[in-house]
Amino acid sequence: MEEEAGAGGKVKKFLYVNRKAPYGTIYALESLEVVLIGAAFEQDVSLAFIGDGVYQLTKGQDTKALGVKNFSPAFRALDDYDVNKLYVDEASLRARGLSAEDLLVPVEVVSTERMAEIMEGQDVVLSF
């Protein structure tokens, strides 16, 4: 599972699992901060969105009335950091009346079984 990176360091498969709604708690924002910093380490990065975590990717987020920063545009920048494997749990989307068209970035919608396989294939799983 480990290969040599160009810089001579190890490359591991990192999965960030996002389980919480974007606002109400700080987990989603601070998870994204880890992803952005982590991108500099040139690891093999994937993101998973399950449960209320799928709300993090919804289009048209407006936080003005909440008085907190809308950080959802940062998800559009992930591709610039070579973070482009985003997996969204299909059942979580469906349970919330959402589909891939409601999301602001291209994702791979996967079954819960497939999500389990994706997790199984990782070296490091960070759960937020």
Partner: peptide, 10 residues
Amino acid sequence: GLGQLIEAGI
């Protein structure tokens, strides 16, 4: 910094 977390993971 957060790099220390990534490094720990590696």
